[in-house]
Design a protein around this nucleic acid. Sequence first.
RNA 1: CGAGAUAUAGCGCAGUUGGUAGCGCGCCACGUUCGGGACGUGGAGGCCGGGCGUUCGAGUCGCCCUAUCUCGACCA
Length: 493
Amino acid sequence: MAVEIKELTSRSDNYAQWYNDLVLKADLAENSAVRGCMVIKPYGYAIWEKIQRQLDDMFKETGHVNAYFPLFIPKSFLSREANHVEGFAKECAVVTHYRLKNDPSGKGVVVDPEARLEEELIVRPTSETIIWSTYKNWIQSYRDLPILCNQWANVVRWEMRTRLFLRTAEFLWQEGHTAHATRDEAEEETRRMLNVYADFVENYMAVPVLKGVKTASERFAGAVDTYCIEALMQDGKALQAGTSHFLGQNFAKAFDVQFLDKEGKRDYVWATSWGVSTRLMGALIMAHSDDNGLVLPPNLAPFHIVIIPIYKNDEQLALINVRIESIVDELKSLGVSVKYDNSQNKKPGWKFAEYELKGVPVRLAMGGRDMENDTIEIARRDTLTKETVSIDGIGARIKILLADIQKNIYQKALNFRASKTITVETYDEFKQKIEDGGFIFAHWDGTPETEALIKEETKATIRCIPLDSDTTPGRCMVTGKPSVQRVVFARSY
RNA sequence: CGAGAUAUAGCGCAGUUGGUAGCGCGCCACGUUCGGGACGUGGAGGCCGGGCGUUCGAGUCGCCCUAUCUCGACCA
């Protein structure tokens, strides 16, 4: 039975369902028995590990170190920063008791009312508060700065509505939290990490992004500025793929973190925080997949190559095994990861379909004909094309092919985005074009009122005020008031 | 949290006016197969999401939970 990934990549009517089916069928994740939570299955987790390792290397290269802070945050910490608590209060899981006891009626266990916590604990939705209460003890002098810490952790946000990878109640992420002596240094750090994210998403995930700043209403709760990278999915909806926040002195003031500078003057510490999550996997899936399944860029595929033998009997398989062994060795020596699937319980056709579904970038197949001719069949996942080539020099050929696939997947996504990015002058045109999905560059008067009106009437939000684009001033498409530059609108996840 | 839908075998689904639980895929055994998700024969597998009611009798009718999906509101 063929996998029925519905033909929806080009349509948006039920893209969400298509995505869900794909995640399930590609064996990446499933819903858990816990409401809104996700089980990441081994193949899905292997992709996450690739993401983690690469990002972690990039953090280290930019001078960051890893640390770990508690899962539980005293309730009172959250209320120290007014905007922060307002932003997160509605979605917190709260621990109120520390013990269970046998139900007096003899059925199971109940919460022991005697074991009520003096102060409730919040399961972290993000760690600014617990980290800044800690940093207070770490920082006395300018000599203690900067602190450049990252933590890999899970966080919980009790969202009303969830979707695998894109918005789960619990998710995995990394959160960087840095402390600096000057405003300039903190702002520079904020932008540096934004660039690290953009570099990663474009060059490893092969997803082009727009870099920009959030408007006040889309800003992180407690930040002075929120920078973001925005990606476009195949159904024309935008997805925020990562954020980097300049927190000013807000958290330093909330947790009274001061230092003595070179002149012996006391000042509050400047802060940043930045994070990306398992949502990146959602972006990866939605940006590249087709109706045959996942399409993974080689830089993030758990294995680059799958090799499938085609044989009629054990003797023939034994011969192919020997031939493949030397090819596997050659590929491995070149740093190419290979899976040789000579399992006998599945037929070749089944395996072809299965590994396409899993998005393996390149498939090699060898059968009797190839053994005779000293050839091998190469099939690439991104274009679904195949050719039969000589085994001679296969390693070098594969290296070039993988680089080409990485580039091609990115280029395809870039072309798609270009075809879905437009500029409009009038609100009428905007209302009409927003129905087609994609990014729309338009002038906006800079007020939250106009922004809210547009959202109300069109469901489109300002994804960001782009950093690297045209800064020609103009007039707001809604009110006609002056606008300093075009901003990017889209409907989003 | 509002509106709608769904919950039956590992997965996808049937199940008529209420009367002993079905199909396809998958799984197990054997045989034939193997260059794009093979086929035959035989077999295993279900407290019909949970609870309470109506009834001689409930997968089916009623009420209450719970979970999932879609659409809103909220969000990375």
